[in-house]
Structure formats: C-alpha cells, structure tokens
Design a protein around this nucleic acid. Structure first.
Lengths: 210, 210
DNA sequence: AAAACCGTGTAACTTTTGTTACTGAATAAA
DNA sequence: TTTATTCAGTAACAAAAGTTACACGGTTTT
C-alpha cells in the first residue's frame, strides 16, 4: 500500500503524512458496478482513489438520477469531505465505474490533518475546487447543450476515463446517466452512427470519429 | 466596520481574527445591478457579505447566462476562494441583487489565516460545502424540474432574499436568469396569474399565494 | 405633442424531447 | 432446445420549450 500511496500522492503529501495515512487507513478493492455510497447514508471514511474510476450521481425523490461527474486516480470525493466535516448525510450516490482500488481514511483523521499538514489542507481545498468546477461543468451541459451534444460529451468522457475506444454499456444506462429516456438515446445514437461518428453493437458502442 | 463584523461574524470568528480582518480589509458599498466580478477576470480580494445579496451567474461562450445561486449576509463566494487559492480566473459573473455592503479581504491574508485560525478554516470549508450544495440544487432544478416549477422556485428564492412580496423585474430578466426566452416566461407567468398565484404588472410581480 | 422605445400579451409555428407501443434479434435460463 | 429475458430499432403521437411576428399600451425622449 505504501508504494501505491507514494506512486500517486508523493508529489502532494509530505513523507510524515504519507506515513500517517499508511498507519491508519485500509485498502479497498471494489468491482465495477458496486455501490460505494448510497444517497442519504452516513459516511465513515474518505476514499483516495489509487486506480479505477468512481461515478458520482445525484438522485431526486422519485429515484430519477443524473450523472454529476467521475472521480479518477488522485481524486477524492469532495462531497464526502464536506459530509464528514459537517456530519451531514450524503447527498449523492457513488458507483464504481470500473474495478477500482481505494484507500479509506477514517473521518477523525481528516480533521486532525487539516490542522497539522499544509499539504493536506491544500489537497482538500483543491478537491473542493475541482468538484465545484465539475458541478458547474455539469450545469453548463444541462443548461446550454442539447441532448445530442450532451450525449457526445458523455461518450467522450467515458472514453477518456477508460482509455478505450469501445464503451460497454446499454442505451438504457446512458439514459439513466443523462436523465433522459432510452428511446431518445437510441434515436440520437443511431443518427450519430449514420454520420459515421460511432458504430453500434449490442451492449457496446465503438467510437470511430468524434 | 468592526461593529458590522462583530454583528455578523462574531459567532464564527474569534476576536483575534476579527481584529485582523478589521485591520486589513476595506468596506465596499455597492448599488443594485452593479457588476462585481466579470467572468474571465482575475480576483484580488474576497468579499464577506454584511448585508444585501449577490447574484452569481454562469456564462457560456455565446454570452448566454444562467443563475447559479444567491449569496446573502454571512456568505462568501466559494468561487472566489478557490480562484484566489488556485490563482485561476473567475468562472462566474457576480452582480449585486440589491444594494449591498461587503468587506473585502486581500488574497494574501486568506491563505495565511487558513494556517493560523481554525475558525477561518472551518468557515472556508463550510462555504465550500454550501456552494457545492447550491450548485447541486441548481442541477436538480434544471435536470429534474420543468420550466414552470423552475420559475416558481425562482420567484420563491427572490422573495426569500428581499423579504418582499413584490419582485421588481422584467420577464426578459427572468428569462436571462433561467436561460429561457421572454415569450416562454410571459406565457408561464400568465398561467400562474390565471391560477391566482401571482399578480402581474409592468416591471413587477406580486406574489399572492404560492 | 409627436416620435421612439420598452414591456407585455398572444397567435402560429417549429424543434426538441419524451411516451407508448410494437418488432425482432441476441442472449441467458429452464 | 425451448422459453424467457434483455436490448435495440422504429413509428406515431404528445408535451414542452423555443421562435417569429405583430399588436398595444405605457413611458421616455425630443
């Protein structure tokens, strides 16, 4: 674990802090699709992502959902941060986008370290900034883009995260993430296929030329 | 100024910090409608709001805009925070929603105080949390609500902020804030008037029964 | 007072998005 | 292998939102 930590967080944290993290936190390997945080639950530990990706979703009262953003290697969940510090319930749902490896840090330490380590404080501030920006980027998408462009952006984001040109998912799943309907997504995807941007298969979408 | 500070931030900041703020910051009185921060500009000071309200807007490349949230008494601008700390450009536009009084804190102090005062750190964290939540609430509105409900929410927010039952604005201005068109807003407002929820006049909307 | 401008109301129409319903092919389960 | 289930394609329709165009009454400017 200490190697994982050094590899990913060495430039961010001083040695003393790396040691502390090593001492108190546990490693968690999670399979794709696993729910990490359920909306409305309390949170007892903060994840640092070593590899993989986590999908953060917002749910409304009727169970409709919307993708907010992805967390990747080197990221942490700002929502978790503020929930822990403020002792609020989680406002979001988190699902493993792919097989991932996390380091879980107990809540108590987080607060202690904000006093103790400047690098930790900066990391926390930077995380907040990144998440706020991601949230605003999401707002941009929903407010200013039509569904076809949102879909394009979605496909782009997915390929960036996995590094692959083939996305394994269903039209229904995309519809959930974008809070649209399956028929609408199928329609738009078919249009994109006709334009030669993508190639459609059962359970997968191949990015040809976006 | 020190009285203003004590009145609004006494419960948040210890005396030593209040004194420091008093020593380095300047008071700014701004009239309704004044632009405080322009998207893309650099920021040199952080505002603490003493009274009044500030409207925070997002702009896209074509100049379309969207209301993100309001800042009120006791609030600060998390965007400014992260811009200052990260030395990024502003991603948003800020306009005085009403005549307001602000205390402007120089950037350099902010960072210094995060090391020095626990109460300042907590204030900064809490601000981030609040703004992230507001941003997510905005996402909820755009993603999950139809325009009529967004409009209702908008009118409610406006009355909450001013404390008045009469909103002085134009349909065009509302359309800008909600990123819609004047005709759509007029249409929906007229429907609401017919239901007896509001009363429409030139340049003003009276809230009757929402 | 006349002219110009602004804010609102409304009609007619288009575009975008969502819904319902049904089809067939691929895959998984019995 | 037969059956059931899941996924995708498509048509027909409905609802929501956006657009264009014009009218009308205030308000402001000249």
């Amino acid at each position: 674990m200490i190697e994982d930590l050094k590899k990913n967080y060495n430039h961010l944290f001083e040695n003393a802090l790396l040691e502390e993290i090593h001492g108190v936190s546990i490693v968690k390997e999670i399979p794709e699709g696993m729910e990490l945080i359920r909306s409305g639950s309390y949170i007892k530990a903060m994840p640092l992502i070593i590899h993989g990706a986590i999908k953060i979703l917002r749910e409304d009262t009727e169970g409709d959902e919307l993708l907010l953003y992805f967390l990747e290697k080197g990221d942490t969940c700002a929502m978790t941060l503020s929930c822990c510090i403020g002792h609020h319930k989680s406002e979001v749902k988190a699902i493993a986008e792919m097989d991932s490896k996390l380091i879980m840090i107990p809540v108590e330490k987080m607060e202690e370290w904000t006093t103790k380590y400047k690098s930790w404080r900066n990391f926390v501030f930077e995380s907040y900034h990144k998440r706020l920006m991601e949230a605003i980027e999401t707002i941009d998408s929903i407010a200013f883009l039509k569904m076809d462009d949102r879909l394009l952006k979605y496909l782009n984001d997915k390929t960036k995260i996995s590094g692959l040109k083939i996305i394994n998912t269903t039209h229904q799943q995309i519809a959930y993430d974008l809070h649209s309907s399956r028929v609408v997504i199928s329609r738009l995807l078919k249009k994109m296929e006709n334009k030669g941007l993508i190639k459609l298969n059962r359970n997968s979408i191949e990015i040809v030329n976006i």
